[in-house]
């Protein structure tokens, strides 16, 4: 659906994107993750030509974006809906007028517009707010209008620029749920730019990590969170205290293992003691994955290491000095 190969982009002296490559398949929910200023939003805008890139290539549905004429670009954007952090709705139009606007721009017949707007209002659950002014809506409702507007032209791709960053956690989940629903029902490919780990875990199949314009990791969401590269750790730093004596080991549980009592088994088999420092089970889309941080004595470390290896556990010793 989208293939980016070595995109680079600079604003004056500042390089905002350096050699960024990735590809997104049809029907994917693809996360672009990084802290603010990492170049995520700029990258997203290179895909629909709102920003030009200086080097590399972006092919959307097989066609190079940079070589498109103005008219072709507009046709491309028709296939790519976009939603925004601040919703970017027209304050002076009401809900249905906002949703209808893209259709009017593309000269859709009046009765067709009415039908389409009605369907979209049902889809995002705002049928009773049809004639409400934008300013009377909550943040979540505004984003629902944004989503309805972005879907008005039946796009094949939906670009989400920090779409849930201005929303509270509960609303964030409901919006992500809606995006997943849309992704499934209409096989719309979704690109989700975010700095919220919750959003990534809840919705994304695959993730691209971006730091200062560079790709610092990419892959399936589960894999990245089970064995996070350094760049991801900076984003999801463990809030657990380091016990100074022994060695901290962070164990990652893929789904199958989570159910087995591997840790108590280890204590029995090896006849050692260790302390549990922290841990968490998290929901990644529909899977439950978890990690546990235990502290083992230095003299037991080798045996523990071997045991974990035998049982094919993902693990790491974050503060290991040895």
């Amino acid at each position: 659906m989208i293939e980016a190969d070595g995109i680079s982009k600079r604003f004056g002296e500042q390089e905002v994107l350096r050699d960024v490559s990735f590809s997104v398949g049809p029907g994917d929910i693809f996360g672009i993750v990084g802290c603010s200023g990492a170049g995520k939003s700029t990258l997203l805008r290179c895909l629909n030509g709102l920003e030009a890139y200086d080097g590399g290539s972006v092919r959307v549905m097989g066609r190079e974006v940079a070589s498109m004429t103005e008219r072709e670009l507009r046709a491309l954007r028709r296939e790519m809906g976009m939603i925004f952090q601040n919703f970017n709705l027209m304050e002076r139009k009401n809900v249905e007028e906002n949703i209808a606007w893209p259709l009017e721009v593309w000269k859709t017949p009046r009765n067709e517009i009415v039908r389409r707007v009605g369907d979209l209002l049902d889809l995002v659950g705002l049928a009773e707010k049809r004639t409400e002014k934008i300013r009377n809506l909550s943040g979540g409702q505004k984003q629902r209008v944004g989503i309805a507007r972005a879907l008005a032209l039946n796009p094949k791709i939906l670009l989400c620029d920090e779409a849930t960053s201005a929303l509270d956690p509960k609303t964030t989940l409901s919006i992500l749920e809606l995006l997943r629903d849309i992704n499934r029902r209409f096989t719309v490919t979704v690109l989700l730019v975010t700095h919220q780990m919750e959003a990534v875990k809840t919705a994304c199949h695959r993730v691209l990590l971006l730091d200062q314009g560079r790709v610092t990791g990419s892959g399936r969401t589960e894999d990245l969170f089970l064995a996070p590269p350094a760049s991801l750790k900076n984003l999801v730093r463990d809030e657990y205290a380091v016990v100074p004596t022994g060695i901290n080991i962070r164990l990652m549980f893929p789904r199958e293992i989570a159910r087995e009592s591997i840790i108590t088994g280890m204590a029995r088999e090896l006849g050692i003691d260790f302390s549990v420092i922290g841990g968490r089970l998290e929901r990644y889309r529909d899977d439950i994955l978890g990690f546990l941080i235990i502290n083992v004595r230095r003299e037991d470390f080798d045996r523990v290491q071997r045991y974990l290896g035998e049982h094919r556990l993902f693990w790491e010793a974050p503060d290991d000095v040895a």
Binding site: N48, L50, L73, R74, A75, L76, R77, R78, M80, G81, M82, F84, N86, N88, L89, M90, W101, P102, V105, W106, R149, A150, A152, L153, L159
Partner: peptide, 11 residues
Amino acid sequence: GVVEAARSFGA
């Protein structure tokens, strides 16, 4: 942002 939104759907 509103202007950008309009650009984003090809106006």
